Computed example of a mutant assay.
Amino acid sequence: MLADQDPVVLLQHAGLNSLTGKTGLAMLRHRRGPIVAVIDPDHAGQCLETVTGISRSVPVVKDLAEALPFRPSVAVVGLAPSGGVLPEALRSDVLQALKAGLSVASGLHTHLADDPELSAAIRPGRWIWDLRCEPKGLRVAQARAAALPCKRVLAVGTDMAVGKMSACLAVHEAALRAGVCSAFVGTGQAGILISGSGVPLDAIRVDYAAGAVEAAVMDAASTLPDTGLVLVEGQGSLCHPGSTATLPLLRGSQPTALLLVHRAQQSCIHRLPEIALPPLGDLIQLCEGLASIGRPQDAGPPPRVRAVALNTAHLSDAECERSSAELSETLSLPCVDPIRQGADALLKALLAS
């Protein structure tokens, strides 16, 4: 429901320098359409690039009243607060946005349209898009994507929130620059908001999760030539005790190649230090082993991990270069940070598969 050309105001209250604001930060980094203002009272009047490191010229304002002169048409909730409940200040701006004639897009588990006051405030021709809703007409996966002629790449991560979406979008953008027909399949709230479509994997019953991914991949592939590339945003991690997302993504997408995404120098699950990450070589073998089963006999060679996308946001430039080089040598794979070093090497390796 969110079109590329829609002027967006991000509701980013206290989220410009926090992981709770990762949805809005991802939009600031990757959305090609206009973002005309960001609401964050904690940083109002400050330079966006100074606060976030994202090179994009967008004014930061304190509330919706200050954002309206920039003529947004859609207000997007850029936060992922604990429990999915809107903070009162943010809810107030959502209500004011609706009363001012804006549409609202939200990826929270709590559906805004279920709030009677918010729903009653929607102006004619406007909408609330609660994107975390299970699509209708789902079916159980049947490995149909394996018959697609195009290449299909799935991002798999060593942990949650390591940059799987950003890596896929960076490769997607590199593909478009190189003249490669490419499609991105968002599977989380930020990816869906950025691309305007996708499958909200964590809102789907487990029996239909792989089928929902399959349908989204089939739909994306239908827009591409046989030589095209479908990039599927990963979710969760096989290494995380709370994650179940990798298997339906593998089964639904039937990938032809895998892109491993890893935060450089991370050795354990974030916030669960008692759970160590396995050696990356072992994890690569595990991912490849799981991807090799549940496939039709005529599906071609099983997918391999063809490259590693590193998240080096916490490292200096010199440390980034050293970490990339060391891991590339250890794994005998291209290992680069697609945000800092570009995604061309990753694209080349994935296309060569």
Rank of each mutant, 00 (worst) to 15 (best):
residue 226 D to Q: 13
residue 157 G to K: 03
residue 190 A to R: 03
residue 173 E to P: 00
residue 211 G to F: 03
residue 154 L to A: 04
residue 162 V to A: 06
residue 148 L to A: 05
residue 218 M to W: 00
residue 169 L to V: 13
residue 139 R to L: 12
residue 192 I to E: 04
residue 147 A to T: 10
residue 149 P to N: 15
residue 225 P to I: 13
residue 206 V to Q: 09
residue 173 E to Q: 14
residue 215 A to L: 12
residue 142 Q to F: 01
residue 143 A to K: 01
residue 181 C to Y: 10
residue 178 A to C: 08
residue 209 A to S: 12
residue 175 A to F: 05
residue 194 I to G: 04
residue 226 D to V: 13
residue 148 L to R: 01
residue 210 A to Y: 04
residue 222 S to V: 00
residue 181 C to R: 13
residue 149 P to M: 13
residue 170 A to M: 01
residue 229 L to D: 06
residue 171 V to T: 11
residue 229 L to N: 10
residue 222 S to Y: 08
residue 221 A to D: 04
residue 148 L to W: 02
residue 162 V to N: 03
residue 177 R to Q: 15
residue 182 S to T: 09
residue 142 Q to T: 13
residue 172 H to R: 14
residue 174 A to M: 07
residue 201 L to I: 08
residue 221 A to H: 03
residue 143 A to W: 00
residue 152 R to L: 07
residue 195 S to A: 15
residue 171 V to N: 02
residue 147 A to K: 13
residue 142 Q to R: 15
residue 194 I to T: 11
residue 159 D to T: 04
residue 201 L to V: 06
residue 235 Q to N: 10
residue 146 A to G: 13
residue 204 I to M: 05
residue 158 T to L: 00
residue 235 Q to I: 09
residue 233 E to F: 01
residue 204 I to P: 12
residue 149 P to T: 06
residue 164 K to Y: 05
residue 184 F to R: 02
residue 236 G to W: 02
residue 147 A to L: 07
residue 141 A to H: 08
residue 141 A to M: 01
residue 179 G to T: 04
residue 236 G to R: 06
residue 223 T to P: 03
residue 218 M to T: 12
residue 186 G to P: 06
residue 203 A to Q: 01
residue 198 G to T: 11
residue 232 V to E: 08
residue 208 Y to D: 00
residue 182 S to N: 14
residue 165 M to V: 02
residue 155 A to F: 09
residue 213 V to G: 03
residue 150 C to H: 05
residue 237 S to A: 14
residue 171 V to Y: 06
residue 151 K to Q: 15
residue 146 A to Q: 04
residue 195 S to C: 08
residue 143 A to V: 07
residue 184 F to M: 08
